[in-house]
Design a binder for these strands. Structure first.
Lengths: 137, 137
DNA sequence: AAAACCAATGCAATGGAAGTGCATTTATTA
DNA sequence: TAATAAATGCACTTCCATTGCATTGGTTTT
């Protein structure tokens, strides 16, 4: 059981108050968040700082970016079962058309996709849209 | 064999010179294009006109929109094998990380994706990224 | 401990794409 | 031909992503 500090240090990311707060915020959320979401949660911090923090996390495979088709980039922590460094370990994302939230279905791996001869598949982005469990009752 | 004029009329779209040109441009291209691509091809036309023309085509299921993860919306003609009106008829798209082009793999349908209980799947967006046939030789 | 250094933060500004309101032109219909 | 409706063009706005630069703050070196 690592502390957040240890996790950051193990990835060569300097531990700062801001980064700890942002990490905790992401950990608390169970859905993918936009930069604006983070911004609203930390009114005192500057957009740029948040932006660059998230980018840093992304480079070091602490968060992954999600393009759910809303046109706004979302981010979510890479956690248990999410090995973003490994190309082939890709889970799918679900976007709710009702509440507009996007969640990682970490344990739903993407099936092998066949592409025509001559094409080389490196990466797959799969977003399922519909109604989430909270909205479908 | 329908003429473009007949196709447009059959979908209740007024035939104009601009629309014919845009349709032909899309038909000529074998890849999905951005609004800017169209804009560059028709320097004399206004962005807005192109934008609204494409939107009109989209509403009438003549083109479909593609979100390939580049952050820029792309469009491609719906043609043989592409029945965009039918929700379940979804083909996949391939985005080349080298030449940055996105093409429709019309005959590659998206496999059935299982989602957890309580989730209702309405739509699926699947983009495979890698190297296309032209770039992989 | 002080100086030098580098990374993190904050502020301001830019750029690109999507979208909207309104005036004008063009086409359709009465 | 007049009246009407749709298509086009121009100007502008908004929103998100991104960058440059000055400043702050923490590390390392001497």
């Amino acid at each position: 059981m690592k502390t957040i500090e240890q996790l950051l240090e193990s990835k060569n990311i300097r531990v700062t108050a801001m980064r700890l707060l942002i990490y905790k915020f992401l950990a608390k959320k169970e859905v993918a968040v936009t930069l604006s979401d983070i911004e609203n949660a930390f009114e005192k911090a500057d957009r740029t700082t948040l932006y660059r923090t998230v980018k840093t996390f992304e480079e070091k495979a602490i968060v992954h970016q999600i393009d759910d088709g809303t046109g706004i980039t979302k981010y979510a922590l890479c956690e248990k079962g999410c090995n973003c460094e490994i190309e082939t370990d890709l889970h799918l994302h679900f976007h709710c058309n009702n509440c507009n939230e996007t969640i990682c279905l970490t344990d739903h791996k993407i099936p092998q996709i066949k592409v025509p001869d001559g094409f080389v598949s490196e990466n797959v982005n799969l977003v399922v849209k519909g109604i989430c469990d909270k909205c479908s009752v």
